[in-house]
Amino acid sequence: MPASGSSSGRAVWAILRKECRSEWRTRYGLNAALLFAVTSLASTSFAVGRMSDRTDVLAALLWVVLLFAALASLAHTFVRETEGHTMTLLRLVATPTSIALGKLLFNLLFLISIELVTVPLFLIFMGAPAPRWGPLLAILGLGSLALGAGATLVAAIIAQTRGRGALFAGVSFPVLLPILAAAVSGTRAQWSGAPVTAELRLLAAYAVALLAASLLLYDHLWEDA
């Protein structure tokens, strides 16, 4: 008799470890994403210079760079499965929800890794004023959670189509836009000394809504081929 419900947790964990191991072995995903992030950051910094006084612009630029990095890399986890034809294997060992959660957790780790490099570099290159770390980290955390949830779901869709990077960016943009708006507003607020509770609430609510929708929708994602 097969194992029971607790194996969903194990499936998620197994998938997460598998993703990390695959990523480590090939490593092109993380390299490309970091390169992309640093390149966009460098271009921005070069074009705009130091902007210590314009925290509104800084907030926007930071999230644009992060968004670009996310759009350039978060689809890989599903595209690799499709191109390698390994979705069959995956679907035979785990439920759609477990697959989704495993991939989501991996994408979150991925995003955080990119942010660990990009955010400090951004603050330095752009001459940003010292942030209020509590609020900034909270925004980065919740923003990344929402970003991951939305992008992973859309990536799962896109991986089954003919389209790739450009389509992923275009199709996920409306879904990710509320995150961008709230995160930029919150980042600006933490620099101007205003409270960020409204933005944090918004990001949290959106993340929860996206995760709830995911739980319902992932079952329908892989039903053919």
Binding site: A3, R10, W13, A14, R17, K18, V93, S98
Partner: peptide, 8 residues
């Protein structure tokens, strides 16, 4: 991986 994901 397959065995672990299946909870074996």
């Amino acid at each position: 991986f397959a065995a672990e994901a299946r909870g074996l």
